[in-house]
Design a protein around this nucleic acid. Sequence first.
DNA 1: ACCTGAACACCGTTCAAGT
DNA 2: ACCTGAACACCGTTCAAGT
Lengths: 218, 218
Amino acid sequence: MPAPAKLRPQLSPDLVVEAAAKVLERDGIDGLTMRAVAAELKVQAPALYWHFPNKDALQVALFDHLMADLAFAIDGRDWREDIHLMCHQLRRHLLARRDSAQLLPHGFFVGPNMMEQAETILGILIRAGMTPKDAAYAMSTGVSYIITWVIGEADILQRRLTGHDGNDELAHRLVATGRYPYFAQVIGAFELGGDIEGQFDFGLNCLIAGFEQLIPRR
Amino acid sequence: MPAPAKLRPQLSPDLVVEAAAKVLERDGIDGLTMRAVAAELKVQAPALYWHFPNKDALQVALFDHLMADLAFAIDGRDWREDIHLMCHQLRRHLLARRDSAQLLPHGFFVGPNMMEQAETILGILIRAGMTPKDAAYAMSTGVSYIITWVIGEADILQRRLTGHDGNDELAHRLVATGRYPYFAQVIGAFELGGDIEGQFDFGLNCLIAGFEQLIPRR
DNA sequence: ACCTGAACACCGTTCAAGT
DNA sequence: ACCTGAACACCGTTCAAGT
C-alpha cells in the first residue's frame, strides 16, 4: 500500500523560490514580503524560516533562479561584438523580469546559475587575451553597470507611465534661475523623452573601449 | 518689547535635514527613520510631514545637503587627469559620509549643490571638446559608476569588520565542485582581501578611456 | 522534522484635534 | 501655521507550542 497522500505538498527551498518569483512578478519588489510569499504557498510566514534563514537569503536564491534561463546568443567571431551582445541580452533579461535587478544589494555572482553565466563571460575575455584578474574586474564592472542601468531604466519607464516627475520639476526650477548654464544646455538629455537605449549604449561602448586597452596588441 | 522667546525653536526644512544628517551618521541608513529624525528634533514624527511631503523628498534634500561641501581640487591642465581626480574625490567624499550613496534610488542631480558640482564637471568635458550631449551622458555614466561602486565598497569594508561572509562561503562551495574552471581562477579577485582601490581605478580608467574616444583628434 | 499562533519591536503615513 | 495624539496598515523575525 502506498504512503497516504499528504494534505499539503511539503515545502522546499525550490517551492519557496518559485512562489517568491510569482509574487515579485505580480506585485513588484515592494510587494515581495515574507507574508506574501507565504500566502502564495497557503502557509504562515514563519514557515519560510525553516527553509531560509532570512529574507536576504531568499532574495539571493530568487535572483539566481531568475537567471537560470538566461542563454547568451553569440557567434564567437569578435569578442567585442560578443560582449556587446551579451550585455544587451542581460539588460533585456533583467528588464523582462520585474524588479529583478533590485534583488541584490551586493554581489551578483552567487549561486550556480550566475556562476555558469560567469564562465561564458570569463571565457570570452580570457581567450581574447585578458589576464584572469583583468577579466574578473571587467566582468564585475560590466555587470555592475548593467544592473545599475536597469534599475534606473525601469524607474524611467515607470515614471513615463505615471506621468509627472517631481525631481524633473525641481531641476527645471533651478535651471530657470540661470545659475547653471552648462546644465541648462544638457537638461534635455536627462529628460524622460531622451534616447534611453542610446544612453545605455553610450556607457557600454565606453566600457568596452576601455576593455580593449587591456588586450595586448599583436 | 521683543517678541516672547519661543519655547521650542520652530522647525524648518533645513533643521530637519540637519537632524537627518546627524541620525544617518550615527545610526546608518537603517536607522534613518522618520521617528528617529523627529526624536532628534524633540518632536513627534508627523510634524516632519509639514515640511516634507514624504521620506523620499527628505532623502533627496539630505543627499544634496551632504554634497554641499564637496570641493573639487583640480589644476585644469589635462581633462583626463582632472576627471580622474574628481572621481576619486567624489568617492572619498561619499565614503566619508556614512551610507550617503544609498540615499538616492534614482537621479542624483537634483538640488542646488549637486547641480553646482555638475557645472564643474560639464565645463571640463565640454571645453575638452565633447558635445553637450556626450558630456551629459559621460557625467551621468561616471557618477553612476562611482555611486554604485561606493555602495559596494562600503559593504565590503563592513564585512571585513564583521568577519565572515555568507555569500563568499556559497561561492567557494560551488567552486569546489569543479564545474566552474574560469571562476576558480578568478575567485581570489573577488575576495574581501582584494585590491579594492585598484579595482575602483580599473573601472574608472576603462570609462575614461572610453570618454577619450568622444573627443575629436586634432 | 516541519509548521502554526501569537507576539515583539518596529515601520511610513494619515488625520482629527489642539494651540 | 504648525504640531500632537492616536491610529491604520503594514513590516521581518522569534519562539513556544502543536503534529
